[in-house]
Amino acid sequence: MEAFTRHVGTAAPLRRSNVDTDQIIPAEYLKRITRDGFEDGLFSAWRKDPDFVLNQPQYQGVSVLIAGPDFGTGSSREHAVWALQNYGFRVVLSSRFADIFRGNSGKGGLLTGQVPQEVIEQLWDMVEADPGTEVTVDLEARTVAAGNLVAEFEVDDYVRWRLLEGLDDIGITLQYAEAITDFEGSRPAFKPVTQ
């Protein structure tokens, strides 16, 4: 996994709350068996509307998504994270994320920064007034900066460390293979097996 320390890019304002994973990537795109190429499914229902923010020329090439509250609710589909990443997003900011989406993002290397809704509103206003506004997201310092605005964002300590180091989960766990084997030795015999 690619390490994440600091990111600078332009941002798209997504003025909607409760964006669930079915909106981020509809079920019809989940049938694929690969890990890439999901960008065409991102917000696909909304992208049919020429006025949708990502269809506007001034928001091409964005890499930061400024979203409304309760982003990523619904299904546990990690494809939502891949779709955002495949499209080019490195960071999503919101005042509240759904837990599973947040977890999936951390593992996939997409940074989800939680900031108060006032900060979201300011960022919305700013990138709507000037779509070229550069947003700087500093994971080391846990800050997001744009124009005169500097705000702290919340990110889980452990997720932050892993993103900074670019560490893969399974590799970390397999260092404790012995502890797992010990635990297996102590499991009660009545626990079921599938075969």
């Binding site: 546990s76 589909r77 990690e78 494809h79 994270v81 599973i100 977890g103 999936n104 593992k107 996939g108 889980d156 452990y158 989960d169 399974i170 970390i172 766990t173 397999l174 293979a177 797992i180 297996e184």
Partner: peptide, 20 residues
């Protein structure tokens, strides 16, 4: 509880999950 695909991979490989 439900998990994402990379957690599915994690459980397949280790039969465990790191969780808070």
């Amino acid at each position: 509880f439900g998990i994402g695909t990379s957690e599915v991979e994690h459980v397949l490989a280790t039969q465990t999950l790191p969780l808070k």
